[in-house]
Amino acid sequence: MTADLGARISGLLRDVADFPQPGVAFKDISPLLADAGAFQAVVHAIAAVAGDDVDIVAGVEARGFLMAGALACELGCGLVPVRKAGKLPPPTLDRSYDLEYGSATIEVPVDLLEGKRVLLVDDVLATGGTLRAAAELIADGGGTVTAMGVIVELGFLDGRSALGGLAPLHTLLTL
């Protein structure tokens, strides 16, 4: 990752105060997604660290879906959604976890991950609860997370430590 890409990402982030609840400063990547060149550069950068060790890309709802779709096309592999509970048709596997402002449950489809090498992606790493739960779900489904990729890591929340070395984590910008 180049310093130029980090600066480009930083310039395209939008801070949204008190969202989704008071006291939370949400990092919105919508301006980055709307910039074709920046979005393409982000996809290329994450694809480069994933290498050839990927059968399927798992994207965490909702902005991770956007990354996962583009990455799956770039890498020539499949895609699996990691969704909020109740959004996928059964059968699914689910896991609950804590995040910086509450708790949530996510799920994945059954029988799509068995024996697959998985690149797990999301837009922002905050406390690490969502990525950890997603990685554990993938393992429960018989897959192996070979790498994780995020656009922005909120270093001050130390989410990286919550991942406990589950797989190599690649971030394009740390704040």
Rank of each mutant, 00 (worst) to 15 (best):
L71R: 04
D15A: 04
A45I: 01
H170L: 09
D111S: 12
F26H: 01
R83V: 01
A62I: 11
P109K: 07
V60H: 06
I29E: 00
G155M: 03
A41K: 11
R117S: 04
K27A: 01
A135H: 05
A48D: 15
A139D: 09
S103V: 12
A72L: 05
V121M: 04
T92Q: 07
G143S: 10
D123T: 03
V16P: 02
E114T: 14
V118Q: 10
Y101S: 03
L99S: 09
L157Y: 13
F19N: 00
P31K: 06
C73Q: 14
V108K: 03
E107K: 03
L13V: 02
G128V: 07
T130Y: 11
A58D: 09
L93Y: 08
G69E: 12
R160L: 09
Q40I: 07
A167Y: 06
L175C: 05
G142E: 11
R132W: 07
L172V: 05
E61Y: 10
D122Q: 10
P20T: 02
V42Y: 11
I46F: 10
P168H: 05
A45V: 04
P22E: 04
V108E: 03
V82L: 09
V124Q: 00
G37F: 05
L137G: 05
D28C: 07
R83F: 05
G37V: 10
D122C: 15
E153Q: 15
G115Y: 13
E100I: 01
T174W: 08
E100R: 01
A104S: 12
G64Y: 01
D111W: 09
G64W: 01
G141D: 14
T130R: 13
A3M: 13
V54T: 12
G59P: 04
A133M: 10
A25P: 01
A162G: 14
E61D: 15
G37L: 14
F26R: 00
R132I: 08
G23L: 03
V24W: 00
L33G: 03
L137H: 03
G155I: 04
L166V: 15
F156D: 14
D4N: 13
A47F: 11
V118H: 06
R8K: 10
P31G: 06
L5H: 10
E61R: 14
H44P: 02
Q40H: 14
A38D: 05
G164H: 05
A167C: 13
G142M: 07
I46A: 07
P91F: 10
D94H: 13
E153L: 12
L125Y: 04
L154P: 02
Q21G: 03
H44W: 14
I9E: 02
T171V: 15
G141E: 03
A70T: 08
G37W: 10
G86W: 08
R95D: 03
V54Q: 01
I29W: 00
F156S: 12
A162F: 11
L137A: 08
H44D: 15
G102H: 11
S30M: 13
D158Q: 14
L173I: 08
D111V: 06
D18F: 01
R117H: 07
G143E: 08
D28R: 08
G155E: 10
L75Q: 02
E107L: 01
L175K: 07
V110W: 06
T171K: 14
R83G: 00
T105C: 15
D140H: 05
